[in-house]
Write a protein that binds this DNA or RNA. Structure first.
Lengths: 210, 210
DNA sequence: GGTTGGTCTAACTGTTTGGTTAGATATCTT
DNA sequence: AAGATATCTAACCAAACAGTTAGACCAACC
């Protein structure tokens, strides 16, 4: 499952393969992705995918794992450093938005993964999501204990924030392409960081504050 | 493109085909769906799909169109009857949630559609979405004019509501399957109507009220 | 300098899949 | 009842696709 790279050359090839795979899976999903296309974009012979990583499924799992696990860990670490519950909520939203901005391939992959019931989601990925939710649960509990938040389901909060962010990101191309959508909506930024994040932060905090 | 049914029998067959198609597209997405599988579930010979509806793409478009256009029209009609802006917002959320509950095939199809940049989204579907957004824009404007809402981007509000609802619906199987997710989250209802809708309504109104 | 082992390529294979066709059967029309 | 039209079936085809193979190349090491 895990290959031990025997030289720099090999490691580089593997990286190129995984990047190309992430790109193609993001664009077309697992069934839509063509192994030949991944090989073409990585600039390697198709047999190399099988030699270095494995079959189509192995490629997909490698991509998923790297994306989700990385996100969950970073989120946890940054939140640990914040002060008040409200600060922590802001950090959570800010960090989540930043991750999506920095890793634009993630939203479409996650959406498709959810759409197919997460049947191909590796265990480590599910654990990552669970950690994020219990993280928010902790923040909200602390807020309630300190009397600044009203009691609310952490999962719903995460659905609202993550749902809004992911759908916003992923809807960007559609929104920009459709001529009959109002001009001010079409010109909204692709990036979450900035006005979109600011507005969502404000709305969510108003929603949960006592 | 549009077949004129020449008998009840034909109409019935077409309906069975479209239902089966919606089911399979929802489960597997466009590239993952197998035409043979659709035919099998509809209980008709594969050639019948091509005879009555058209090729795979035509099948898909027919499914998408029926789902989205129907939703937009019903939403518009029900909102027209409500009173205050706050009532209208509640109706919009309630109606949207009800549509997703009644039509469980819609969320996965919509998500995948978005994930692939809506490239295969028929024009009529895009118009439906645009109508919903301008509908919300109208409600929010009215609320601002009456001094009950603070000015806020209608598209963002729709992203939050629709994003939360769709992601919530679609995440249900994953949430229920993962053992390490907290029990109280796993036991949350599959239906939006009820406590989930109530909580989201409350949160969204708090977020936009002056 | 030859042998070993990791890296890579071109060409191939077996299967799956979307789509077609030639013709059978039912239904309607006059 | 005869002909025409709509509905349906079984079998078929060509293209697309995931995955394989046999062997070339190249660096390191003895």
């Amino acid at each position: 499952m895990e290959e031990a790279p025997h030289s720099d050359k090999s490691g580089d090839t593997v990286e190129r393969i995984l990047c190309a795979a992430a790109e193609v899976f993001a664009e077309s999903g697992f069934p839509g992705a063509r192994v030949d296309e991944i090989a073409r974009r990585a600039g390697v012979n198709k047999a190399m995918l099988y030699y270095h990583v494995g079959d189509k499924k192995d490629l997909y799992e490698a991509v998923i794992r790297s994306i989700i696990v990385e996100t969950a860990e970073r989120l946890e670490e940054e939140i640990r450093q914040a002060g008040t519950p409200e600060d922590k909520m802001r950090i959570y939203m800010r960090r989540f938005a930043a991750t999506l901005d920095e890793n634009p391939l993630m939203p479409p992959i996650m959406m498709r993964e959810l759409a197919s019931g997460g049947t191909t989601l590796p265990r480590s990925a599910l654990e990552g999501v669970a950690r994020v939710i219990s993280l928010i649960g902790g923040i909200l509990d602390e807020g309630v204990a300190k009397g600044v938040f009203r009691p609310i389901n952490p999962f719903l909060v995460h659905m609202m924030v993550a749902g809004a962010f992911i759908v916003y990101k992923v809807a960007a191309p559609v929104r920009e392409r459709a001529e009959f959508i109002p001009e001010e909506v079409r010109r909204m930024p692709r990036e979450l960081a900035g006005s979109v994040l600011g507005d969502v932060e404000e709305m969510v905090l108003r929603a949960i504050r006592k």
